[in-house]
């Protein structure tokens, strides 16, 4: 398949999602508010802590706002593009509805991952970006356009890592018939992406910085805005994205081989 065909299929899915969202406008508004409020909860925590201290692991309040904003931005994009699709995949494999994707004229992983988009996830992404820009201004930083482009690239790497880790764990459904607990696990682990790397020491550093690339996903882009590009960090992030994407794709296709239709 050519790139244009992928784009056409994705646009058709996006159009379908938009029409569906507009049919349930009240729900859309409620869910957007829910997402917005949860973002407020995360920022509220930081705000309250900085009422009583000046620094967390050497990061001031606006540095932390860049970090938390970056984490929320990646999470919003994940929610918008992939979240529903991946969790529906877990359910579909269990119920046999997954056959529907096998019968479609396109690569299964692409069809599974991009069928729907969630507009309420996207709606809050600009707000998360707004938090980052506001914090950058408060710090008196003036990143160059190139720095912003690199930051955007790093956000995409972060999105790829989040997508890949989620796909990796959801693909376990081919073996264990249920992906329950993955959602809770994702949110529990994602909390670590809102921590400065310097706060993690010992075993926590080994697990959450070097093992799972949770801290890298947010700290590297945030540091790029604060202090400029550090090439080895950028390569680390890109390498982690490539590694996790490869692992997830292998895991998915291994699982796919095990899949036997459950429908009648």
């Amino acid at each position: 398949m050519r790139a244009a065909q992928y784009i056409r299929i994705w646009l058709a899915g996006a159009r379908y999602s938009m029409v569906r969202t507009m049919m349930f406008r009240g729900d859309f508004i409620m869910w957007s508010l829910v997402e917005l409020f949860w973002m407020g909860v995360n920022l509220g925590l930081i705000g309250v802590i900085y009422q009583h201290t000046e620094s967390i692991a050497g990061w001031g309040p606006w540095d932390m706002a860049i970090l938390v904003g970056t984490s929320l931005l990646v999470q919003r994009l994940l929610m918008g593009f992939f979240w529903t699709n991946l969790f529906e995949m877990g359910r579909n494999v269990r119920t046999g509805t997954f056959d529907f994707f096998l019968a479609q004229p396109g690569p299964v992983l692409f069809m599974v991952s991009t069928r729907k988009i969630d507009l309420d996830g996207f709606l809050n992404a600009p707000i998360a970006l707004g938090v980052v820009i506001y914090a950058v201004n408060q710090l008196g930083l003036s990143p160059t356009p190139l720095q912003w482009v690199i930051y955007a690239g790093m956000i995409l790497c972060g999105l790829a890592i989040h997508y890949a880790t989620l796909l990796f764990f959801i693909s376990l459904v081919f073996w264990i018939q249920s992906a329950k607990g993955v959602e809770g696990g994702y949110f529990a682990l994602n909390e670590f992406s809102r921590l400065p790397r310097e706060a993690l020491r010992g075993i926590a550093s080994v697990v959450f910085v070097y093992g799972l690339p949770l801290v890298v996903v947010t700290n590297v882009p945030a540091q790029t805005l604060r202090h400029g590009l550090e090439l080895h960090h950028a390569l680390w992030l890109a390498g982690a994205a490539a590694l996790w994407l490869s692992l997830a794709v292998i895991m998915f296709h291994r699982g796919l081989r095990r899949y036997t239709s459950a429908s009648s």
């Binding site: 201290t53 967390i56 607990g181 809770g184 529990a188 670590f192 921590l195 400065p196 926590a204």
Partner: peptide, 23 residues
């Protein structure tokens, strides 16, 4: 499983507040 995952949250809390109390 939920209770075990909550230990992860507790680890996050310990790290964050430990850093906030530093000094």
């Amino acid at each position: 499983v939920r209770a075990s995952l909550s230990l992860l949250h507790l680890a996050y809390v310990f790290i964050l507040w430990g850093a906030a109390f530093s000094g």
